[in-house]
Design a protein around this nucleic acid. Sequence first.
RNA 1: GGGCGUGUAGCUCAGUUGGUUAGAGCGCAUCCCUGAUAAGGAUGAGGUCCCUGGUUCGAGUCCAGGCACGCCCA
Length: 1144
Amino acid sequence: MNSPKKAFQDVQPQVSFPKLEQRILQFWKEQGIYDKSLQRRRDAPRFVFYEGPPTANGLPHPGHCLTRAIKDLFPRYRTMRGYRCERKAGWDTHGLPVEVEVCKELGIHSKAEIEAYGVERFIHRCLESVFRYTREWEYLTERIGFWIHLEEAYVTYHQSYVESIWWCLKTLFDRGLLYHGHKIVWWWPQGGTALSAGEVGQGYRTVDDPSVYVRMPLLNEEGQETDTDLLIWTTTPWTLPSNQFVAVDPELEYARVWDAQRGRHLVVARVLVEPLAQKFSRTWEVRETFPGRRLVGRRYRPPFDFYYRQQGSRRGRLRQGGEEYWGWRVVEADFVTTDSGTGLVHQAPAFGEVDFDVLRREQARFEPGQGPPLLCAVAPDGTFTAEAPPYQGQFVKDADRQIMADLKRRGLLFHRETYQHEYPFCWRAEQDPLIQYPRKSWFIRTSQLKELMLENNRHIAWLPEHIRDGRFGNFLESNVDWALSRERYWGTPLPIWQCEATGRFEAVASYQELLAKPGVQGTEVWQRAKEQNPQLPEHLKVHKPYIDAVTYDSPFQPGARMRRVPEVIDVWFDSGAMPFAQWGYPHRGQERFREQFPADFISEAIDQTRGWFYSLLAISTLLFGTEPQPGEQGTFRQEFPHPYRNCVVLGLMLGEDGHKMSKQRRNYREPQEIFDRYGADAMRWYFFANQAPWTSIRYSEQAIRDSIPEFLLRLWNVYNFFVTYANIDGFDPAARIPAADAGDLSRQVLAGGEGYRPHPQRGELDRWILSELDRTAQLVVQHMDRYENYPAARLLHQFVDALSNWYVRRSRSRFWASGLCEDKLDAYWTLYECLVTTCKLVAPFVPFLAEELWQNLARSPFGQRVLESVHLADYPTGEPSRYDEELSRRMGLVREIVSLGRSARTAQKLKVRQPLPQVEIVLADRRDQPWLEQHAELIAEELNVKQVHFARQADQYIQYTVLPNLPRLGPRLGKRIPLLKKALQEADPAALLRRLESEGQVELELADGPLALTRDDLQVRLQAKEGWAAAQGPGAVVVLNTQLTPELVQEGLARDLVRAIQEERRRRGCQYTDRIRLVLFTPEEALQQAAQAFAQYIQGETLAVELAVQGQQPPEGEQVGRYKLGSAQVGVQLEVVRSSGSPA
RNA sequence: GGGCGUGUAGCUCAGUUGGUUAGAGCGCAUCCCUGAUAAGGAUGAGGUCCCUGGUUCGAGUCCAGGCACGCCCA
């Protein structure tokens, strides 16, 4: 054999994917491939992606690997599909996560301590902390192959970002959508600030709280205690001192029961009498039942008299005339349930939103100034005030014990137990419980836009779909105004200035606008700080404390000054504003914003339902959901949906053990370890190909490792196989292709290659795999266009499997033929086209492996004439016309027959090396027979039989059953189906089939009349009779003839010998092309004869130029390999006569 | 307590508009191949499709109720 030029670089069979990936990363970086991929789509339509900004002051964990992998997949795919998809990174830099981190470093906790440390110094520390783990984040991003412009990232504390938000808030303020209100908020006492629903939602924990039943004696008309008590239930004893009402359901039936043990009457809901009595181990006697309405208006004595002493008998004038007591009476409410508690609900309006509404409603009944005030014995720091002297200074939760003890001592504590429930804690300072608390706070009137948000939501394509009307839709339905302000330090300052004289507010849209105000003062505070420390970034001047110093003349009253309100805003507002704020819109970046709005695609984990998904939608709807007001800057009305059209909601990532990942539990591997051991492609493929992305995904090292043999290595082996033989044969796809620009090696380009024949001229196997290739490409594109990575990945997996386990397996012998004959060239071109196309198809999924393949398959032979990277290529879309469904079905049948044959062999313990005389094939549908006969050779080879016979008369080994083809007949016959089944059971199936075959149709007599049936109306099931080496499937029965002749036995032995010799070749390190001289040693006569009879076959298979057989035991020594064939010993001695590559 | 989701082989999961013998991978067992070779492949065992009821000629699939688990929220 001559030594032709190699078109491809030889492939190392023992591939290390992590090392390969490092090389590819280097290549991408050095050649700027990502930028080139954008450049190439410069004028293409846009595909807009938004990056949800991570917080870089915490370490990335495996969950982020999934989001980053998905965020890479679709932009990469869309780029290959011909879109321009810019990917701008972003960082979330504000808010509690940062402040809490810094407090931990400083060893402080409370706001007082921060103030003592100094707000300015504190802010500087925050700034330093923000990018603490940037390097880790950037490493992860790059290593997993997430292409994104990190160097152009938007940063939420930057001045332009902040000013965008100011513009947004000013717009909302001017529209009356941003207001200062008094409400019950979720309050973080230690942190001294309110939190948003999103933040609260992140901090729920299961805790044991006290659960107390307290009695409150009813009063009579004169205000004296009666012998009847209201029984209420609460898990927050600390709210009892601030009790103002008891609520009942007016329609619900209540009972007055006699408690003999106490000698008093109690009032509880009628349906709760038994369960409560049981809980308290009492016997209660129901004395009276009545609707709740009868209790309304009755007064009671509260458990504490801190307020009651002063106000217990206070009354006010009602709007509708008459007077009413301020409080401590029964009111009606629609939220009372009998699911828990007693059916009577303690109301402390200061510490509950619904309670507060009750107070509001009661206040509204009184004439102005006549109604009850809000009672609140708790200070903002969560401690009791002087209004509850015994507990003054105690933190509310800590005071629970003493409160319960006091109640017990006074005989008011009816029952006490522990109650396990979910309770919110601060999402960053996890030891701090939150409480509901009345507070003046800034709100966005989102509830006013609820319908619009719902409408907007209806246009979003959610994956999975149920998020739209389920979790997200429900959340929108229950929308409450957004508690925007935070009484904290490191955040976007609320751009509102207040007149010190009139208290009126004004919003400011930019720093420049602020500087342009009349009589501006205070900017020197920033100037001085900057002079002192020139390193300070300019961005800080729009932050606390510098911005607080800036004041100006009030437009509301001459001589008065405008001062900024002290609050910063909810950090979730920052990220929700990114569609415009990332460009600094509208102060700058107008064009960029218009191009990149709305997004086609975003993706985050499901916990963002109330987080980013909501903040994006809410802000966008507020700004761009309605016609702009006259005189507004930058707003316009955008058609729904915005700001995102498609949202892939990712499931929760679980640890190895199926539980939440946790550092303490050590139930997951660090991403770094996975990258080093298995590589990013393995991880990506595991994420994409093993489950729908919205199911919870188990982050399992084993499962990630498995994607290597299951997919990556399988593809690699096919590639390796191809390159090995292509190099041996000197196959060069570039040889005759004249085009200076071969582009991405489309089919049209390949068609110009040397020896390339059009597909229809090629053999069936080639046409089959090419048809599968087109089908796969088509379906993959269909799924990927709908963001369905999982079915797409499965299709790719199936194709690679078919390529490896059927096409290559069946084609191997074609590659072994000598010289480059037409059939061999067909095989090369077919496999080459499959590999090049697969490489493009898998590129968005496993970008590293795809690139490696491309570099060798395309770049090695074509050099500069093809695209530099697979990621610059166009994604193959397949052509429907090239999918040959019939061929696919038939090949399936061939594979079924082969599989059945093997099954029959296994059942008989007949190894494939032993040739058999004949196989008998019985088809369920004989129409396939003519076509299958052409494949007899293939079947014979796979099953190692001498003859393939298609049985016409197979009654001797087959039993037929004829069944209705239900999908066809069901709709037509409906209720007649059972009758047909009965008729078929009674008919003679063989005769029926014969009639069908001769006449094309058959008439059956059913119980209610005749029925004409064609062949397609019926399905034939075959069953092998006992006593045959047979296996049955839906399409065929395969029967083996197991009679062995001496010749067949000899041939089997010869194949055993070949196997031993090949093993020896391998042991001795022979090249595939090495010729050998061969000596076999065996005293076994049968083997000697077999070797002689099949000498030519053996020599051909093993490239032996000489074969000698010695009838003696093999001699000792390293030069002779010893093998056991059945019971016989064989020695194999070989000597290489000449090496490949060296001249003959 | 409410909302949403999930429940299919030992494990991880598929399962189209209802259709006859419910699939895949891993693991396990038995075996094959040895010119892809530190690979590859075949065959097999393994199922009350969570339970109950309903609709239907026919239900893993549709409906109702229940149970278990998860997430989100009260």
